[in-house]
Amino acid sequence: MKSNTPVLFQIGWNACINCGACVAVCPQDAGFISAFDTIAVNTQCDIACMVCEDICPVSTITHTQNNEFYEEGL
């Protein structure tokens, strides 16, 4: 685990090839997906293991730390 702070993922859609590898390694429960066969981009991830970023063949997944959510305990 590289981080325990919840994060929000961003996908650089210009480079995304819709391969689904990020979803395949994702340990989240069902439904942590976007409409384009990627991990969810509008829901915070509190596992924050970042394996989706590592597996991406074109490195087009990034994240911002979601400290606000974390501090409010949401």
């Binding site: 590898a21 395949a24 390694v25 994702c26 340990p27 394996v51 590592d54 597996i55 991406c56 063949p57």
Partner: peptide
């Protein structure tokens, strides 16, 4: 879900 060590990118 598949382990990082076992999913070829």
């Amino acid at each position: 879900h598949i382990k990082m060590t076992e999913l070829a990118s």
